[in-house]
Design a protein around this nucleic acid. Sequence first.
DNA 1: CTGTTAGCGCTTTCAG
DNA 2: CTGAAAGCGCTAACAG
Lengths: 383, 383
Amino acid sequence: MIHCPKCHQVDSINKAGMVRGKQRYYCKSCQRHFSFADTPKPRSKHQVTIVDMARELGISKSTVSRALRDQSDIHPSTRKAVVELAQQLDYQPNLLAYGLVKSRTNTVGMIVPEFHHYFFPEVIIGTQEVLQAAGYNLMICQSNESYQTEVANVKALMASRVDGLIVSMTSETNNIDHFKALENKGTPLIFFNRICPELETHRVVVDDYEGAYRAVTHLLEQGYRRIAHIAGPGSLLISRLRQKGYTDALASYGIELDPELIITYDLTDEKARIYATYLLDLPTPPDAIFAVNDPTAIQVMLVAKAKGVRIPEELAVVGFSNDPISAIIEPGLTTVSQPVGEIGRTAARLFLETIRLGEQTVPRTETLKTELIIRGSSVVRPA
Amino acid sequence: MIHCPKCHQVDSINKAGMVRGKQRYYCKSCQRHFSFADTPKPRSKHQVTIVDMARELGISKSTVSRALRDQSDIHPSTRKAVVELAQQLDYQPNLLAYGLVKSRTNTVGMIVPEFHHYFFPEVIIGTQEVLQAAGYNLMICQSNESYQTEVANVKALMASRVDGLIVSMTSETNNIDHFKALENKGTPLIFFNRICPELETHRVVVDDYEGAYRAVTHLLEQGYRRIAHIAGPGSLLISRLRQKGYTDALASYGIELDPELIITYDLTDEKARIYATYLLDLPTPPDAIFAVNDPTAIQVMLVAKAKGVRIPEELAVVGFSNDPISAIIEPGLTTVSQPVGEIGRTAARLFLETIRLGEQTVPRTETLKTELIIRGSSVVRPA
DNA sequence: CTGTTAGCGCTTTCAG
DNA sequence: CTGAAAGCGCTAACAG
């Protein structure tokens, strides 16, 4: 008596012609061809499939599929049986198979340059919040500020067929071919924070220029005049905008720019300390430093403190982002606060919108507001 | 003249029998059956497949597949042609299809309770470092300290057919059925930090008991006697161990435990402030507080400072983890440092080992060393 | 060295 | 309401 090597049924076997001299059979129950020796695979440990359940219930896998998706007409009792069995066997649909069929993975990829500081993890939290509510998963990659890694990340995410990409570029990224290639593939691409001005995509930014302008104006109002700027790498638009805000604020006070007081660096903590030291050791050191972000400003403060330079009397410091540390360090760090979570949420919403509108999407730049948070690092208390 | 609706070839068409009254054809070139009207789908924007490339080169898709994987003998010229075309068309293999065939995704899932503080992002960095070098991707989920979310995360990751799971549990997790279910599926599971003592799995921990014991002993050595402990939730082994270290250290000095001085809480910043306030407002307030982790200790310090309680003269504070903030706050926070990155790397290595050994894996607990970092928050300087 | 065939787990027509 | 068959993009066993 012939039985299916897979489901061990006997009734539902038909002959199905000869192949390579071997008689082949077809099992109607599990919709599989087989021939001997097609040894039944030892599948002791494997995830439950709809075929397993179909066999168990003596129905076709299509019916199981339909019952699970709960659309199209299904006899209530059938549905009930299927759903219960699924529950009992802890059935998890295979998203790989699903994605293959639907060309849709319900997953979006996110690439951020680093994970060490407050900013990016907090953006991710916001993004995930919105995406999860919409039924999407998030695949997060860190590029480590490396162009190579960023390219690899894009490839890996595309190979996983993510439905979209949310990216903040590395400071090394000059060549953007890996992003351009996405256009042909129809994969939505959203930039935030460190955007790519050359690409027409959705973007989420804050008013970096204005924030910087206000920050430096505040320093000027407080009477500081020899204001240095530790800037981010020129490759990032965000650095250039903040620097421009600094420059223009000085200009509006009729202060001539001292190139010696502008330092561009790679955003690593070690370098921040080196340049802070350099500035403070200048024959005529600055009386204030505007840093491109809070981690930089914190390093400046630590160096100044170690040197015995009094803040804010001898040196004022202002940062950007309102990292929680800035409220904890003493004196408190004056900083330009960004709505970090909202940046993440907005990026997620732009992605969802793109999916909804498809071809009709018009790339848009969402600019969120910053706020100057004044703390002790820039205000000499009235004596 | 009949042509394939997909590749538009004319030569390679065979008749392939009648189906439902319609003549069906088979295109040898692209290995597809078709019949009219099988309108060619408008595939303007789609990712390149091996079939596309096979068609373009006039060879079979298997050959393309082989050439790309660069194993088994392939004619050099064929390989060259394929590789060049792949390059030119920016071909990315479809990992969904690959995973489906191989029952392997080269992706591991990671579930952490939160993203707000230093600890977990830094562990992730370590994990990703090792995994990436081994050719694995990481899918990161945040459970937000919610049991429901954790269960959903496990399901989502399993649906994506990750090859393994690296987890730090939520403080709410009592029911562990969702982890038990993994055993039948043969999915490696590795816990770190907040492990699951009921489950026989690989684990990565630090010597929490010992670290806590040393920390409290240090406080005792410094002369503090009324030492409070703000503990984590009792559901976490990690909390219980640190609390036991605290208790035993006191006992070793013959100090009787004051239950009033032990507070168990849910690890949220707000609650930390409330309990710190409570302790400091006690009729006989503690002269030292050992906190279950640095974020808690930081909140304690902030509350104390706001109240004008002098640290360390009136109140000593010790934390756990050596969060960078602890070096920045003033006075510096004495803390038990954990090798955070190494925790992540170790977890990743245990996963890789499990994959390598398969069934023969014997669950192991890796215990990493902590180190007491003494700073100003617990040492009154010699007058 | 290359082509053919089957199948991974699922959805989706098309036929009853 | 249910089943049969085809196909998503890929690998693999087999046959030349």
